[in-house]
Structures are given as C-alpha cells and as structure tokens.
Design a protein around this nucleic acid. Structure first.
Lengths: 260, 260
DNA sequence: TACTGGTATGAATCGGATA
DNA sequence: GTATCCGATTCATACCAGT
C-alpha cells in the first residue's frame, strides 16, 4: 500500500485532484469551537482554547478562528470538493464535537452528500463537569455520494470507545489508530482514503495498516513532516512483511468490539 | 414522593402550569423522523416506521407526522412553555434520534435554553446495516435556564448504555428505567421533574425512585392509564418502605457506571 | 507475568479580577 | 460596562514503577 502526502491548503490541493479518484473521505477538521462567546472562539489560538489549564508542548494548529456561519460555509466548500473527488457510492466521515454537530450536518448536505448517520466516539477519560453532565463523546457524521453499496458484505459498528493517545502524542487532537482502523474499513479494500486535514497522520497510518491507499493534505510544515515520517515507517514495516494484507472484503472487526 | 399526571395535549396543559414551578424538564417527544423522504415520514404511522419487520401489538401514538420545519417550530413552542415553567438554573433534557439532532438543538435554543451539551444513549442491541455503520445511539440534548448551579456537588456521566426493555414493554419508544434514573439526578433531590410526553411513564417512575416529584402529561388515554397504574404502584411501594429516600445531594451513581 | 498503588492529564468550564 | 485574562476545579483513566 502506498501513500501521497501533499503539503498545502486543503481547498487548494483538493481542487487539483481528479474527479472520482478516491473511495472515502475521512477527516477531522479544526472544530472552531471552544469558548463561551463568539469573541472568545475567534480570538484565541486552538492551543489556548483546547489545552487551557494543562501544560503541554504540542504545536498549535491554524484555522480555528471562524464563527459559526463562516465555519459552515468553509466546511461546505471543503466537503463539496471532497464530493467531486470521491467516486459514486463513496463515503464521507467527518469528525465534530457536540457544538458543531448541526453545522457539520448542514455542511455535509450542502455539499451534496446524503447524510446517513451519526457515530459516537466515547472518550472514557475526559474532564468532569460540576453540576451537570460531562461531555464524554465526539461525533462522526457520515454520508454517501449517491446510495450505499448494499452489495458489500460489511457491517460496521455505530459507536466506538477509546482514549486519546497519551504516550507519544504529537498533536492536540490526535486520534487513536485503533479507532481510525475501524473507520477506514468503509473504504473498499485496496481503495483510496482521502484526509484533507491529515495532522499527525493517524488516518493514513490506519489506512495503510488496513490495506487501503492514502492521500493526505496538511498545511503545517511541522505536522506534514511528522505525518510523513509516521507513514513512511508504516509503509516500510508493511513492505518487510512476508505477504501483503488480503485485498478481499474483511468482514471481521479490525479491533475488539467497540464497547468494552 | 408524589406525582401528578395530567391527561391532555402537552401545550394546552403546560400553558396552565405556573411559572418556575418545576426543577427539570426531561422528555422524549415524538421524533417525526423515520423515513428518508417527507412522504415516507408522513404517510406511515409511528408504529409502521419504528417497528418494521417485527410484529407487535403496542398501541400507536399520535403527533408523528410533521416535516422538519414544522417539527422544529412545534418543539420550540413546547420547550418555550417548558422554559417558563422551569425555575432559573433548572435543566432541560430532550431525547432525539440522529436525524433530529439539528432540529432539536435549534428548538432548544429558540426556546431560550442555553444549549450545554449532548449525551449519547448507546443501545447495544440494534439492527446492523449492510454496507455501512449501524445506528446504535440515540441522543439527549440538554440545556440550562440561565447558568448551571456550580455549587451542586454533582458530576454526571456523558453517555449511557442500556437496551430498550423487552420484558413487560408497553410502549414503542419505552426507555430503560435505569437510564432515566441517571437522568433525573440533574433535578435537585426532592425537586420536581416535568415530562410533557409521559408515554408509559418511565421518567416518572425513575423520578419517584430517586426521590424527586413528578408532573406528567399524556394525551393518549390508553398510555395515560398505563402510566398512572405504574406510578401509583411505585408510590405505594415507596410508601410501604420503613423510611423515605434521602433528600440530600446524592453523589453516588444511581446505577453501575455507564459503559459496559 | 500479574497485580497494586501512586501520579499525571484531558479539543473544558467557570467565576472573578484586571485592563 | 465590556473584553480579556487567569487560575481553581474535578473524576476516570492511562501510564509507570515497584512488588
């Protein structure tokens, strides 16, 4: 399995990708949430918003200063390009937090996707909230270009449990590879997964491990470099194996069942 | 603990309840989803939509034939009345399925509530979906009238696991009492929980068991009768106990931890 | 290796001080 | 009065070191 990692702006790079060239769009855009007021949301860096009260040395990431309306329109543009680039019957899976759920489903549908469901990612280790309910989930909104390929012998879970990586974490919003391995299975075996917000590259790592090809885009040179290093290492490991992973439909779960 | 159960239309009955008279609004309105097209939504009864493929003899319920826009406006009216009836710092918890998430958060905010989070209810036993992700969650959107009472020593989970009751189920959308017992704890001990769509009365049963009072509204005489019978029985059981439940803040979980 | 106990941390939130 | 900044807070879990 091979990967391509572009360095540049998501919209700009995507506009140069050919029609119908990928099988699935799986991505985690900057949420542009965090903060009590619109002013607080747009006037602080992602790091200030999402890591306040704790100490860490992770690099900041850009693109997290939009208000609700701008966020919806921007995400719709991204997903519109993603729609063009994805082949018919391909899928999109978009991460969001609770605040951006409505904006995300709007953008997904504005871009032409048939919104087909919402997945929950349960994070067992999250901060408590005094006087109310903690926010222990992030969400993935998914949609289809056209209609679902019901001829595939594929049955995926509707919720996932897993903690953010703690050891060896390099990005503020890094996802567990196990979670991403479950998600990339919506892409046909041997097909191509696109992630226009690659970050540290967990989507790509999962894609390669599951026998899918990967096309990534990352705007920050810092994270582009990190992702490239991770992906190259996975590719090398896989190449040194005696045989390639199977390319037929994999009906068994990549990881243990989602709920413990 | 005592309960009051009105028989009548939710809006009509609520309009006659006094201001600031309840501490929490916890309810599961008719979802008005179930169907990809507006035609599919309005041309089938609730029972046809939510129980296809199985045979059951549960009674149908009304109020499930609105399109998205009408649903949002209708729910906003309900929640506006609920806002008036709820005291400052009181909470609202509203169930919805994935399709109605955006409409629900819109209605909640249109009614004046400060949308403060989204909870996931994980249903382990749900239908698989060929070629994609199953839909294993329902959601609860919650909000506050004013600001959260951060002086309460209360920390509630952000997700819940539980299957719909099988044995002794009397309503199509009946909730597990264990789930509802966790939810009613947002109401101060000894306070009052309002549920304008009482159905078979699980919210009320949970409220009484957790030492909260209950005000319910149910339009269908059939379900009003069922709820009244259930609630009366719980009230009788509690009265025959040697002592009442404690009225101080209960910091321990009512049930086992949410996951697993 | 399996278990135990100690420690650190999280896409946070909020009130109140400061500018 | 408004916008911004600062710091205290909380629990479940993951990780680590030691037995």
């Amino acid at each position: 399995m091979t990967y391509t990692l572009h360095q540049g702006d998501a919209l700009g790079v995507m506009s140069r990708l050919p029609d119908d060239s990928v099988d699935a769009l799986i991505t985690d855009p900057p949420y542009n949430s965090g903060g009590r007021t619109s002013k607080e949301r747009v006037s602080r860096t992602a790091r200030d918003k999402y890591t306040s009260g704790t100490v860490n040395t992770l690099a900041d990431f850009p693109g997290d200063q939009k208000d609700q309306r701008a966020y919806t329109r921007w995400l719709a543009e991204i997903l519109t390009e993603g729609y063009r680039v994805t082949r018919p019957q391909g899928l999109a899976v978009v991460f969001c937090d609770w605040r951006q759920g409505p904006a995300t489903s709007d953008a997904l549908q504005m871009a032409g996707w048939l919104w087909s469901g919402t997945l929950s990612w349960i994070k067992p280790a999250c901060r408590p909230r005094k006087g109310g309910f903690r926010q222990s989930c992030e969400y993935m909104f998914w949609g289809v270009k056209g209609s679902l390929d019901s001829s595939r012998d594929l049955y995926l879970p509707g919720h996932f449990t897993g903690s953010q990586p703690r050891k060896g974490r390099v990005h503020i919003t890094q996802k567990p590879v196990e979670l991403m391995r479950d998600l990339v299975r919506v892409c046909v075996p041997g097909g191509t997964v696109l992630d226009p917000f690659t970050g540290s590259g967990s989507t790509g790592v999962a894609a390669l491990l599951e026998g899918r090809q990967f096309v990534g885009i990352e705007v920050t040179p810092h994270y582009w470099q990190i992702a490239d290093t991770r992906l190259a290492e996975v590719e090398r490991d896989l190449a040194s194996r005696p045989s390639d992973p199977p390319v037929q439909e994999d009906t068994t779960a990549a990881t243990a069942p989602a709920s413990t």
